[in-house]
Design a protein around this nucleic acid. Structure first.
Length: 568
RNA sequence: CGGGGCAUGGCUCAGUUUGGUAGAGCACCUGGCUUGGGACCAGGGGGUCGCAGGUUCGAAUCCUGCUGCUCCGACCA
């Protein structure tokens, strides 16, 4: 390809609408343009990257005994009504009607569609396992699309569904996908971690998220400094922290005027915040009060709490709700609340001795609270958020925290959808059983954005060679110099013949413009053909990633290029 | 949905406070000159100032309503 033929309008200035670096750089590099909020056109450069990512995915999926198919994006409402998700998805689903008034949606995912397909065709355990996938646009009417391709309303997803005859089969499918995903993200040149995650609304299923590490990522993960444990903070399990034993003192009430925050209490009483008990009041979807207690230096994990109390939505409690339940905002205590209030106490709180907690009276706290002795009728559970330095649940070493972008997820669904849609088969004994399912997604367009979030500098994108739009750009320095142009042409043709993915910048621009664009778009390797190349047989190879320059003669550059591309 | 901000040529923005009929830089076209890190000179094309009403002799500017975009929050198989 020649730059004069390439549709890649680059921008010198960053459009005001872009906030995150991947969005800014994709706009500037002429890769994407916005059509509507969360809806983008992929220009040729982006499309090449996407196709390369898809190619890697296809190879790995096929290697994992899977087959590609294509299901409709437009799906009839009845299917979704059968599983109840027509209502559950709510406003996140794009809906439409045909001329007869029949209702459809644009597929946000395809569990219903694939299950109904398989349910008609699979009758026997002999047809299992079955693993089917597709790569296509998905549609979700996000409350708030943002960050360019990171959270779009239309996005490209690879979704695979596995069907097995039993849990053991599912385990095999799951492992195959887990390994395939590891291969895919490795081949894409990305630093990532598979992390244990929360099953969310799907409920209880075993799941891992493949998180591409990037400071700008939306999800926070903890990982062990010693073993390979990694988890989404929402999921990270914690056991109780047990302090040294102390003799229980008698509980007393103390005046603590104006101390509405835990820091204020600790300061007034000259205590470590770790010796205080912090209350956080939530209300559920029925506006019932749920009171959570954690150690003063800990934070409540609202996902865990939500699971413990089986709420579908939790938000910070409003004062009237607290008051109605007999609570006093700012001085909450498990002691003295109305009986029907759900009180959830973190495991570590139960191990505390002679702690300070609210007294459920204005400007008063209790001293020498011993939860094991003093807290009655409470739910004890792991509800706190892991923080850096906490012990790893697997090996006990201190955990570290980092941020990342969820690019893929593998999930054991079990029989939820097969039961709802009566997708059954006959086992070896002729007994009818529901298919055991798994689902496995990769956000393809998001993976492209994540790669940029992870690999960029002040000059632009730095593509890993495997997913770069072109691997090499050949830049003749002086477009008016015939010898340079000819040599550049020659190099371009030789590289093409050697099956290198190469672009020739044949524009009549000054060298600076071409260099700037090459850096912005981020080709892994740049070959500069200047006067020295013509006169002294000195061709320059510049590596985008580290700026290193190698000079070599015409007889050896080809070997150098192939060697460098393998490294980067 | 709650709370901010923005909307003027393809891009970045000025002009709005104090109403007088639209401007800069970049990009684009022509010519010249230049060619190792986003050159320069000259000439040129392109904008119903988001939409709809209203006030006024006159509205990008003031008023009302709407729409779109964006940020924070809630949400996120």
């Amino acid at each position: 390809m020649r730059t004069t033929q390439l549709y890649a309008p680059t921008l010198r200035q960053t459009p005001a609408e872009a906030e995150v670096v991947s969005h800014q750089l994709m706009l500037r590099a002429g890769m994407i343009r916005k059509a509507a909020g969360g809806v983008y056109t992929y220009l040729p450069l982006a499309w090449r990257v996407l196709r390369k990512i898809e190619h890697i995915i296809r190879e790995e999926m096929d290697a994992a005994d899977s087959q590609e198919l294509a299901m409709p994006i437009m799906q009839p409402a009845e299917l979704w009504q059968e599983t109840g998700r027509w209502d559950i998805f709510g406003e996140e689903m794009f809906r439409l009607q045909d001329r007869h008034g029949r209702q459809f949606c644009l597929g946000p995912t395809h569990e219903e569609m694939i299950t109904s397909l398989v349910c008609n065709e699979v009758r026997s355990y002999r047809q299992l396992p079955l693993r089917l996938y597709q790569i296509q646009n998905k549609y979700r009417d996000e409350i708030r699309p943002r960050f360019g391709l990171m959270r779009g309303r239309e996005f490209i997803m690879k979704d695979l569904y596995s069907f097995d005859k039993d849990e053991a089969g599912l385990d095999v499918s799951y492992k195959k996908m887990y390994d395939a995903y590891t291969n895919i993200f490795t081949r894409c040149g990305l630093a990532f971690r598979p992390v244990e995650a929360d099953g969310g609304a799907i409920g209880g299923g075993h799941t891992h998220e493949f998180t591409v590490l990037a400071d700008s990522g939306e999800s926070e993960i903890v990982y062990c400094s010693a073993c390979d444990y990694a988890a989404n903070v929402e999921k990270a399990e914690l056991s109780a922290l047990v302090p040294a034993a102390e003799e229980m003192q008698e509980m007393t009430m103390v005046e603590t005027p104006g101390t509405k925050t835990i820091e204020a209490v600790a300061q007034l009483l000259a205590l470590d915040v770790a010796r205080t008990i912090k209350a956080v009041a939530f209300q559920n979807e029925k506006d019932e009060l749920i009171c959570a207690f954690v150690r003063g230096d800990h934070e409540v994990n609202d996902v865990k709490l939500q699971n413990v109390v089986a709420a579908t939505a939790l938000r910070m409690a409003e004062d009237p709700v607290i008051t109605a339940a007999g609570g006093v905002a700012g001085f909450m205590s498990p002691i003295g609340l109305h009986k029907e209030v759900k009180v959830v106490v973190d495991l570590s709180v139960m191990e505390m001795h002679n702690a300070v907690a609210g007294a459920n009276q204005v400007d008063r706290h209790y001293k020498n609270v011993n939860p094991q002795r003093d807290f009655k009728d409470v739910i004890v559970a792991d509800i706190r958020l892991m923080k850096a330095g906490d012990p790893c649940p697997h090996c006990g070493a201190a955990v570290k925290m980092t941020r990342g972008i969820e690019a893929g997820q593998v999930f054991k669904l079990g029989t939820k959808y097969s039961e709802a849609l009566h997708a059954t088969f006959l086992d070896e004994n002729g007994r009818e059983k529901p298919l055991v399912m798994g689902c496995y997604g990769i956000g393809v367009s998001r993976t492209m954005a994540a790669a940029i979030e992870q690999h960029n500098d002040e000059d632009g994108i730095i593509w890993p060679a495997a997913i770069a739009p072109y691997e090499v750009v050949v830049v003749p320095v002086n477009a008016k110099n015939d010898e340079q142009l000819q040599l550049a042409e020659e190099i371009y043709r030789e590289l093409k013949a050697a099956r290198v993915d190469v672009l020739l910048d044949d524009r009549k621009e000054r060298a600076g413009v071409k260099f700037k664009d090459a850096d912005l778009i981020g080709y892994p390797l740049r070959i500069t053909v200047g006067p020295k190349a013509v006169e002294e047989d000195a061709i320059e190879l510049k590596v985008r990633r580290n700026g290193e320059v190698k000079v070599c003669g015409k007889s050896e550059y080809l070997g150098q290029v192939t060697a460098l591309l393998k490294e980067i």
